Computed example of a mutant assay.
Amino acid sequence: MKLGLRGKILLPALGVVAVVTAITTALNYKLNHDTIESNVREEVSMVAELVAHELEVWLDDRVGDVRGWASIHEYVPAVTEGDEAAAGEFREVAERVVEERDVYLSINLINAEGDYVATSDRGSEGISVKDRGYFRRAMAGETVISEVITDRATGKPAFVVAAPVREDGEIVGVVSGVVDLEQFSEVNVESIKLFDSGYVYIVESNGRVIAHPNHEHVLKMNYRSKFDWGEELLTTKKGYLIYELDGLDKMAGVAHVKATGWIVGATAPLDELLAGASRLGNINIALGVGSLVSIALIVTFILRRTLRPLDEGVAFSRRIAAGDLTADMPVRSDDEIGQLAQAMNTMARGLRDAIGRIA
């Protein structure tokens, strides 16, 4: 196809503009995408860190409670001598705490043989826990937070905080509190929603889920054994990871709880997290197309005004060629095109004069 002068000027100009616009749009999209992704990483990581911090504070409170009860000297005769008055005093306090504070499922006083001598759950008195790991560690002098278990009375996820009872520096028993983990989960895990479908969860250091908005996962799913990315989750001390779950690419902020080794994850699908980047990308494309169309219109307008005298010159030349020597070409400017118009008018007058002399 043979191009006219307009096409020869317009097409290369638009080609250059299109390339520049495409490069600018791509660079803007990349910059915006990277900025939004960085902000999203910080946001999910911050949520995980905040929940982990709240959990650490909550655990510290539980440890403080149990240590406080274990340090009350009046309870010592209950574990050393089987003193019923001391046991009754402990039992009364334990029952009141369990009733007034929904965080404890039971509070127990245990003698050196591992037998409950007083408890808020009267039906459990006499039960032996001598083979439990938390009891042996507490008798060795540690304040212990056990692994998460299913409470036999309520079916809730729970864990035991145990601290040694001392008399004259010698460990003579243990106080334990069975803590309702679901109480923390309801407030600080299940109530948090990230974007449209994101959520927070907590897993133990072995990968077992101990808190999750979907209760069917709690104490039944193990991320380490079930998913390829489970090991990476457990070894990411702080920050984020990207993984696939149920066919969706997801990003999770990760934070560790120092006291227990538990891991808090704050996760959401990537397409939700980066929806802002996609919207900005579409806006950039629309702006690029709009700019290209605007520039095309402006260039076309300029070319039309610039080339209009040439069109008039062509029409003028054709009239002269057809024998119409009365034609005049409008002179619209003083530039080169205006000078060309003046020269063509001079030529036409010269032709008229020459023909007049011949006639």
Rank of each mutant, 00 (worst) to 15 (best):
A341C: 12
A315N: 13
T235P: 06
E99H: 09
I302V: 13
E99S: 15
W262N: 06
G126N: 12
W262E: 07
F135Q: 00
L194G: 00
A153R: 15
V331A: 07
A259S: 14
M344E: 01
R91F: 07
G133P: 14
A153C: 04
E74I: 12
W262K: 13
M344F: 05
A275D: 05
L248F: 13
A140C: 14
A26C: 15
N108L: 08
K226N: 14
L11Y: 13
G313T: 08
M46R: 14
A296N: 03
F184K: 04
L325K: 06
K226W: 15
Q183F: 13
R332S: 04
S128D: 14
A255C: 14
T24L: 13
E272Q: 09
G338E: 03
Y116F: 15
P213K: 04
P157M: 12
L194F: 00
L307Y: 03
H73E: 04
R357M: 12
G126V: 03
A315T: 02
L292S: 05
A140M: 10
I320K: 01
A162Y: 02
T24G: 08
V189D: 01
N222A: 11
L234P: 01
I192P: 00
D246S: 14
A341E: 00
V16I: 12
E42G: 13
L292N: 07
G261I: 10
D334G: 07
S197A: 13
P269Y: 02
I320R: 01
V257Q: 03
G155R: 09
D324F: 11
S146Q: 13
D180I: 10
G169Q: 15
L109T: 15
A140S: 10
R137Y: 14
S191C: 01
R304H: 07
E231M: 11
Y199H: 05
T119V: 04
A359T: 10
S38F: 01
V76D: 05
K250F: 02
G350L: 06
A296G: 11
